[in-house]
């Protein structure tokens, strides 16, 4: 692994909580790794498992899904579906040989700027230690 490896981390953040929390982190001049690319979604329930697969397929080293704490969903129940879906997805990814350290999900509210900063830092550290993601990539060139 290259010493200066900087992982690409894709973070899907719910508009109503984590995205606001990330905003607050910025306004509060909190420092967190710039490895994370935030994609705003209307609800963590919007995050299709295929987004995760596509992220890995197209070169993400780690993926983070963030939503409202259970009970706090703007749409009442969206994050309960998220929870089931990604608890299952996590297992299925590991079953397919993806290190569990590459996929994370967290509940982060709009006021938890510090939790957002700490989560992103922790995920970045974990993924950095794992090195570049080569899984879901083509093993070798195509036959020609």
């Amino acid at each position: 692994m290259a010493v200066d490896f900087e992982p690409k981390i894709l973070a899907f953040c719910c508009n109503w909580c984590t995205y606001t929390g990330a905003d607050l982190a910025g306004q509060s001049r909190m420092k967190y790794p710039e490895n994370v690319r935030v994609v705003r979604v209307p609800c963590s329930g919007r995050v299709n498992p295929q987004f995760i697969l596509r992220a890995f397929r197209r070169g993400a080293d780690g993926v983070l899904v963030c939503g409202c704490h259970p009970g706090d969903c703007h749409y009442a129940t969206g994050n309960y579906f998220t929870r089931r879906r990604f608890m299952l997805m996590r297992e299925l990814l590991e079953f397919n040989g993806v290190d569990p350290g590459r996929f994370h999900a967290r509940w982060i509210s709009g006021s938890e700027a510090a939790k957002f900063r700490d989560t992103v830092s922790e995920v970045t550290r974990t993924v950095k230690a794992l090195g570049p993601n080569e899984r879901f990539q083509e093993a070798s060139g195509e036959e020609s």
Binding site: P49, Q50, L53, R57, N96, E138
Partner: peptide, 26 residues
């Protein structure tokens, strides 16, 4: 829509395989 490349290679086939499992598994 971009979820699935039509290319046939192990990586894109794998995306199909895992997606299929997720879509019908439960």
């Amino acid at each position: 829509a971009g979820f699935q490349s039509k290319r046939q290679n192990a990586a894109d086939n794998r995306v199909f395989g895992v997606t299929r499992a997720f879509h019908v598994g439960d």
